[in-house]
């Protein structure tokens, strides 16, 4: 099922600051709850396994992402796919551009994705609303990155510098001008997909109420993901 979404945000920072924040790998695992493994599979390719457990439902979502057309600090493309097994899959990408604007930087994103399997069959009429809200929350929080509470948030941020994850995540992001490890940009993309998968998995009982529960859970996840991103 084709899925398109776009949006823009004004961030209270310069383009360079925004680019740097977008490429800070620490934010990644803070954004994605249940991040189990994060490995680099190529110069600009990454793989992540994210476990979601909500009530009795547990699903591991594997995502692969490539970063393309890097043009710092102006634009890049994210190309990726996520596999939720029995729940379905999502594949597609996003184009992100940064432009100077009054009061900071205008970040614009255009997402084009295809959703398949149970997600497409049952999620058709909900997916746009859910994804839009998820993205809005992410960028609202991301904008807060540049606000006054940033420092405190950082201190409280969960550290991921351990094991395999840390070896990548702790790589200095400043060196990633040519795209060596800009993991952050796709964090929200994965989080989005995970949230959607989790929501629809929960809805598999097909009872009417399950949809309501799923929507509530999605809202919680969305808020949670946004909050974590904000604290990064």
């Amino acid at each position: 099922m084709a899925f398109e979404m776009d949006g823009e945000f004004v961030l209270p920072a310069t383009r360079e600051q925004v680019w740097k924040a977008l490429n800070d790998p620490d934010v990644l695992c803070r954004c994605i709850q249940g991040c189990q493994a994060l490995e680099r599979t190529g110069e600009n390719s990454f793989k992540a396994d994210v476990k979601m457990k909500i009530g009795p439902v547990s699903s591991v979502f594997s995502g692969n992402v490539d970063l393309l057309d890097l043009d710092p600090p102006a634009s890049y493309r994210i190309q990726g796919k996520g596999d939720g097994g029995a729940a379905g899959f999502a594949k597609g990408g996003a184009k992100v551009t940064l432009n100077d604007t009054e009061g900071g930087t205008l970040l614009r994103y255009d997402i084009n994705a295809d959703i398949g399997g149970k997600l497409a069959q049952l999620g058709g009429r909900l997916i746009n609303g859910v994804a839009k809200r998820q993205a809005d929350l992410f960028f609202e929080s991301f904008a807060a990155e540049f606000g006054p509470e940033k420092e405190e948030g950082r201190k409280e941020g969960r550290s991921v510098a351990q094991g395999d994850v840390g070896s990548i995540a702790s790589r200095p992001s400043q060196s990633s001008v040519r795209g060596s490890a800009p993991a952050t940009p796709w964090a929200w993309f994965i989080a989005l997909a995970v949230a959607i998968v989790a929501g629809f998995l929960l809805g598999r009982s097909e009872a009417d109420t399950a949809w309501v529960v799923a929507m509530v859970v999605l809202a919680v996840i969305s808020a949670g993901a946004g909050f974590r991103a904000g604290r990064g």
Partner: peptide, 11 residues
């Protein structure tokens, strides 16, 4: 179905 063969009217 959508253009990739995903069932859109599945419930």
């Amino acid at each position: 179905f959508d253009r990739e063969g995903q069932l859109l009217t599945g419930s």
